[in-house]
Computed example of a mutant assay.
Amino acid sequence: MQTITLGAVDITRVVEWHAPVAPTSAVFPGATAEMWRANESWLAPDFWRPDTDDLVAVAQTWVLRSEGRTILVDTGIGNDKTLSDMPAWSGLRTDFLGRLEAVGVRPEDVDVVVNTHVHADHVGWNTRLRDGAWVPTFPNATYLIAKADYDYWHPSNTRPKVGSLGGVPLEGDRATMFRESVEPVHLAGQAVLWEGGHTIDGNLSLEPAPGHTPGSAVLRLASGSDRALFIGDLVHSPLQFVEPDCDTCLSEDQAAATRSRRRVLEWAADTRSLVFPAHLPGHGGAEVRRDGSRFAIERWAAFDRVA
């Protein structure tokens, strides 16, 4: 199943990339080996490879059809991008646009693009190369980007950026990422830099969830009696449902990211909302319930497994 319906909103999952990423000991410095082993029965093999200790992840886009419009939530890695800190993604070429077309979405059909935050693997297909220049991939779309992230990653901001993988700083060429994937949509007049919150339509709204990046956001879906949250990188592994205080090395502010994650998961549990992180393979998302100070998985989303 590629598409599910919540209330009056159709949700389609389009996967761009799927592979092991890095050892969990590097990605989750605060998580112990015992935490992974205690949950191996359901984390492996979709989310974790015990034999190599690798985290398994996807880059994917959620296609929402709401009130007659087509909305993309995150745009993945993109083709031909310069990503020196992630060699597996640098210069990547996939048939992502063909996969979108296979579910009935051409670039000109997209009305709204939501970037849950500005990291290279969430803004990549914002743009594509045309005659040597980066141009908006979706020519008729409004791109919703948190102003806090736009300002933070803008090359004029010289504040040091944190984040490392196994002790190796993940600085990369942030100015290049901004130039390739963010600045072109702004210069084209297609970007809306929102602050404080943003209403997309009667079913969908954005709210801040800072920490992973200063402008990290959650997209709330509320339609009829159905609820869902598209939470970007607040969760990289479902281990964080049961160990919500474990953050990754990839956050700009780990303490703030943990506070945002707890707040969002508490709301999800209390409202029986489906939770869709950006990078989960398997069924892509889950409904969670409270389990003391932690959370447990009540049920997986109805999408077919990506394994």
Rank of each mutant, 00 (worst) to 15 (best):
L92A: 06
M1A: 13
L221S: 07
W62K: 11
P20Q: 04
S181R: 13
F241C: 08
L92D: 09
C249Y: 00
A148R: 06
G211K: 03
E180W: 06
W267D: 15
R128W: 13
E183W: 02
A307W: 14
R263Y: 09
F230Y: 10
A278T: 08
N115C: 10
L250S: 00
L83I: 13
P45Q: 05
A217F: 01
D226F: 01
W134Q: 15
L193V: 08
P23K: 09
H119C: 02
P87I: 03
V110I: 08
G282Q: 09
S181Q: 15
R289M: 13
S25E: 12
R69T: 06
G285D: 12
D149R: 03
A26Y: 12
D149S: 08
V235Q: 10
W36Y: 09
V103I: 14
V27K: 09
W17H: 03
H283F: 06
A217K: 02
T94P: 07
Y143S: 03
R179Y: 13
S41I: 06
G197A: 01
G211E: 06
L6G: 01
I71H: 03
G7I: 08
W153P: 07
A59M: 13
W36M: 05
T176Q: 13
P139T: 04
R37F: 03
S205P: 10
V9W: 00
D111W: 05
S205M: 12
N203P: 00
D109R: 13
I77E: 12
V56Q: 07
P87E: 12
N39T: 11
M86L: 15
Q60W: 09
R290P: 07
H212Q: 09
D111T: 03
R37T: 04
A38L: 10
T271H: 12
S66C: 04
L170T: 07
T176K: 08
S273P: 00
V105H: 12
R99W: 04
P184L: 04
E195Q: 14
I11M: 13
W194A: 01
A59N: 10
R261S: 00
T94Q: 07
G91Q: 12
L92C: 07
I77V: 13
E67C: 01
S251V: 09
E40S: 00
V306E: 05
